[in-house]
Design a protein around this nucleic acid. Structure first.
Lengths: 224, 224
DNA sequence: GAAATAGTGTCTCTCAGACACTATAAA
DNA sequence: TTTATAGTGTCTGAGAGACACTATTTC
């Protein structure tokens, strides 16, 4: 670091977490209505000040913030980028260390009311629209070459459901046969022998699959 | 953001820039000896406080810091990640928004004395070893599918020199024929008709190539 | 049996890698 | 002419995508 001769005026330091989930195969993000200025009444990402006396680092702050929102095990959490500047917060120069998180469909029930489709958002507080766009972009770019999207799935799912999630994230159509071959050959998912509820569909019921241990281990951060 | 009821103690906010360059085909990073506490006398990345009254955002702060080091046009600059926590700086809880930058071999002359090979570094100030490791990793992962490494080259170079740079970054050997085909077919570089100094080598002199306009435009940030 | 989706088999085209060859300069 | 590196041509195997086929369930 270059040494400055004076201390500089402090900046506001926050973390923001974009919690992504699927609702009916569409990608959603968790937003809450702000009950205070600035941007009182606007929707915003889960976030808050870094607590210097309490948070070991920014990741810990993001975990704390996520835990306040979800009363359940913490999801996959990855640093996205830091958004900063003198214009984004009316209170002054601020920096937001932003994270993306994925929650499985099994975990969406309690927060369903706060999930909003990412491709149809109103104007949000601060520069949170920008953060979400960057988060979706990160998600998309990782989708094509990774098993990350299985973290969005419920515990059991059909291959067709999984394919629809990949298609939604990549915004493209995939070939059924090639997709099956790929996720099975790569050991991303495995069959369970169980089948879809026979009465729920009017055709041959599909087999139910789950993420392999290996896949889950890839992303497990063993945080609670 | 979650609204807190109190203002929290301020954190130290800095930017650090890992300036990468090639010296004899080896990847180097620019480090300066600190002349003040903390870590007085230790080598450290180029960096400094964010100047809230002067820097529009963190990128602007990073440009300012880079400009203080290099008295020349600014290089490619990309946000890497933010490193934070209560332990990394003895003065208190701090966050460093870190950037990576690439400078071409044409620009290394004035700062040659401050360039250190990335695979043989002493213990640096703060967590700067960690930042450099992450930066090199980012560089490596981008190398295999992009033209980014040409930014490290001098204006004119032979294909063999370029191949050695890719090999150094990817830590692997490449096939000469396949490499030539790829960088030419993809339009990353183009021939100039000029040839290597005939007397400087004791064999057939190689043609000199340069980055295409298209390649340079990809990374041009038109900053001065 | 018709309808609908589940699930399988296979062909082709592209591209990365391996490798052998030719070209041209200096010594 | 030998040596050294520059530069070209071609074969092959793996994998992505296209697509046609079979299987199994409900109605």
């Amino acid at each position: 670091m270059v040494d400055d001769d004076v201390e500089y005026q402090a900046a506001i330091l926050t973390v923001d977490v974009a919690l992504f989930a699927l609702v009916n195969g569409r990608l959603h993000v968790l937003l809450s209505k702000r009950d205070k200025a600035p941007y009182k009444g606007r929707l915003a990402l889960a976030g808050g000040y870094v607590h210097v006396d309490e948070d070991a680092d920014a990741l810990a702050a993001a975990k704390r913030v996520a835990r306040q929102k979800l009363k359940m095990n913490l999801p996959y959490l990855e640093q996205l980028a830091t958004f900063s500047g003198g214009q984004r917060d009316p209170r002054g120069w601020s920096a937001s260390i932003s994270y993306i998180a994925l929650i499985s469909t099994n975990q969406t029930k309690e927060v369903a009311a706060e999930l909003h489709p990412v491709d149809d958002l109103p104007k949000l507080a601060f520069d949170h629209n920008k953060i979400i766009i960057a988060g979706v972009e990160r998600l998309r770019s990782k989708t094509s070459y990774s098993s990350l999207p299985v973290l969005l799935m419920p515990r059991l799912f059909t291959l067709w459901e999984l394919q629809q999630v990949y298609e939604a994230l990549m915004d493209t159509k995939l070939d059924k046969g090639n997709f099956r071959r790929k996720v099975l050959d790569l050991g991303i998912v495995e069959g369970t022998g169980k089948r879809q509820d026979a009465e729920s569909v009017s055709h041959r019921p599909a087999e139910l699959y789950r993420a392999t241990k290996r896949t889950l281990a890839l992303y497990d951060q063993t945080v609670g």
